[in-house]
Simulated assay, not measured.
Amino acid sequence: MTATTPAAAPAPATVRPAPTGRTVLRLHRGALIVWLVVVAAAAGSLLWAYGPGATEIYANWRRGCPDDIDACTWDTTINGYYRAVRLPELALSWLCLPVAAWAGAALTGREMENGTAKLAWTQSVSPARWLVGKLAVPAAVLTAGTTVLVLVHRLTFEANPFPVYLTWSEREVFVANGSVALALPLCALALGALTGLLLRRTLPALALGTAVTWGVVRLTALVTPDLWPWKTATASLESEWPATAGDVPFGDQGMLTDTGARIPYPNCGDDFEQCMADHHAVAFYADYHPASHFWPLQLVETGILLGVAAAAVATAFWLLRRRTA
């Protein structure tokens, strides 16, 4: 008799983790397409302002003020150039709100509400890895696109110093020129995702994530100027205003007494000299940030936003681990 050799049992198939990065891109390809269109349109607008638009506006500028820049006159030709620069600045400044809404509603809130997140956790994807994919992929895409727009904006802003721009410290210009533009969407992404995990409902997470992000952005913008030391300009009582270099953001303003104390502007009425003597005022003063403070202010605000983002991400992982323990 021939011995029968039992067939070897097939080796168990290796379970490979689901490709969460590609899954996130596939599930949210609509948002990805919208983001790519926004980046392309904003970059194209800024490049037009850097090249052909600048040539046309420069010719118009020289016709309107050939000798004295302070006496320049402009016609409606400047409006197209202004919009081409201003709209990308607004997009960079307020991109954080739609990002927070999308992160809270579509990225986490909807999947927690309809149960697809729990289904993914049973398909060889751990809750932590699921959340990493949900945050890391959008963060990389947002950072890449925003970096391109910031670089193109700086190129346009520095190459064409027409008096069409508001000052460097004007909010939208300030954001679009530096690292704050990169930190804003990352902070919004983290806050939106956290609200989605916390509420586990689409519409409430959308509303709360957007509201919290708006509050954080506004509060950060308000406190940042006071977190870097102000410079102080003074002027005699015969002057109208302390001299500063160009248009700058101002802080505290008022009068200096003969002891060096600061007092607010008094209501003097008609007799200015007697009023100054009564208050022992000897000079005007004004706190301000010169242009050299641009990068310190940028880094302070960027640090606050990234700190909030890190805290939100840490809280999200803690919350997820507690609910799935």
Rank of each mutant, 00 (worst) to 15 (best):
T156N: 12
F157E: 03
F157P: 02
F157N: 04
F157D: 11
E158G: 01
A159R: 08
A159Y: 03
N160L: 00
N160S: 00
P161T: 08
P161R: 09
F162S: 06
P163E: 08
P163R: 10
V164Y: 07
Y165L: 01
Y165M: 02
L166H: 09
L166F: 09
L166V: 06
W168E: 12
W168N: 08
S169H: 05
E170M: 09
E170R: 09
R171K: 09
E172I: 12
E172T: 10
V173T: 10
F174R: 00
V175M: 02
N177R: 15
V180H: 00
A181F: 01
L182K: 01
L182H: 02
A183I: 01
A183L: 03
L184V: 04
P185T: 05
P185A: 07
P185N: 09
P185R: 12
L186N: 00
L186I: 10
C187E: 09
A188F: 00
A188M: 09
L189I: 03
A190K: 08
A190V: 04
L191H: 04
L191D: 01
G192I: 02
G192H: 01
A193C: 07
A193E: 07
L194T: 05
T195W: 07
T195V: 08
T195N: 03
G196L: 05
L197A: 07
L197P: 03
L197C: 11
L198P: 03
L198Q: 01
L199Y: 07
R200K: 12
R200F: 08
R201Q: 10
T202M: 09
T202N: 02
T202V: 05
T202R: 12
L203M: 10
L203Y: 07
L203G: 11
L203Q: 05
P204Y: 12
P204C: 07
L206Y: 05
A207G: 13
L208V: 14
L208K: 06
G209A: 05
G209N: 08
G209W: 09
T210N: 06
T210M: 12
T210K: 04
T210E: 01
T210W: 02
T210A: 15
A211M: 10
V212K: 07
T213E: 10
T213G: 01
W214G: 12
W214A: 15
W214Y: 13
W214L: 15
G215D: 13
G215N: 05
G215S: 13
V216D: 11
V216S: 11
V217T: 13
V217F: 07
R218H: 14
R218V: 15
R218D: 15
L219N: 08
L219E: 14
L219H: 11
T220M: 14
A221V: 07
A221T: 14
A221K: 08
A221D: 15
L222N: 14
L222Q: 15
T224M: 06
D226R: 14
L227C: 04
W228I: 12
W230C: 11
W230L: 09
W230I: 12
W230S: 11
W230F: 15
T232I: 14
T232R: 14
T232W: 04
T234W: 06
A235M: 11
S236L: 08
S236I: 02
L237K: 05
L237H: 01
E238H: 14
E238S: 15
